[in-house]
Amino acid sequence: MFRKKENSHRSFKELGPIIAFLSLAAFTAVLNPRFLTPFNLQTLGRQIAIFGILAIGETFVIMAGGGAIDLSPGSMIALTGVMAAWLMTHGVPVSVSALLILAFSIGVGVWHGFFVTRLEVPAFIVTLGTLTIARGMSAVITRGWPIIGLPSSFLKLDQGSIIGIPIPVWILVLLGLIMDFFLRKTIFGKHLRAVGGNETAARFSGVNVNRVRMITFMISGFMAGIAGLIVAARLSQGQPGVGSMYELYAIASAVIGGTSLTGGEGSVLGSIVGASIISLLWNALVMLNVSTYWHNVVIGMVIVVAVTLDVLRKRIRG
């Protein structure tokens, strides 16, 4: 009898961010009707897909708590894109290239997980290392020049659409459903929340803490790989400079979507909503003719204000 109430109360944590998203969208649409054109909405959708996919991976890592964070996704987008482009321009079939890239990005997650769980190096440092290494490696591979001439079948990954909805959005929806199931309906998800809530107690309860942490980094790596492929398809090239600062937008999306930086709390829907808000901000700033010089300033301030409001709201209720 009480149960229903409690559940519905819980699933509405994303309500605030959703309302914020819709109001901002309405505001933009009123000031510039071009916002609602199919072309703009598709562009927006593609951007949401990238940030959303990264934010989901980031949410898993952050939820494990203990200061866990993944700073590598932005650089990994560049590295995986460049590697995919190199493979495809060297005669490796598109599907095989994609699989290799995904295996590689999961491998990078394993690398992070290994340092964090076995050698007990802070995640911040290990992934900061990758942030630099991956960016550097993409420059090494390309010698600074983009790799062009990707097969047109690969470009559909970003540029194609089904019933008017861009393929990246479909990918986001599919991955979102799978990851949401993982987070809410499996033992792994419950263990993840337990580790984030109290690592010691989780271990005393028989949770394999190291494995849980390892899996979160693998998921984050995998998501970065997917995003890397989509971005390469969007640009029709392997670009060593792409994706810069995306990890920060991913973290911001996760936090705006209700992920607690101390661990234990977070949701897939929330991360997607968070990513939508940030993507929408970019889009709105363009639509409202705000000078590009101001974009980063505005977005930074919005992130701080949004999270502060959320903290205050929690304090009042708690």
Binding site: R193, A194, G197, N198, T200, A201, A202, F204, S205, G264, E265
Partner: peptide, 9 residues
């Protein structure tokens, strides 16, 4: 509190 329970759950 430290070893037995996950207080947030």
């Amino acid at each position: 509190k430290l070893q037995g329970l996950i207080l947030t759950m």
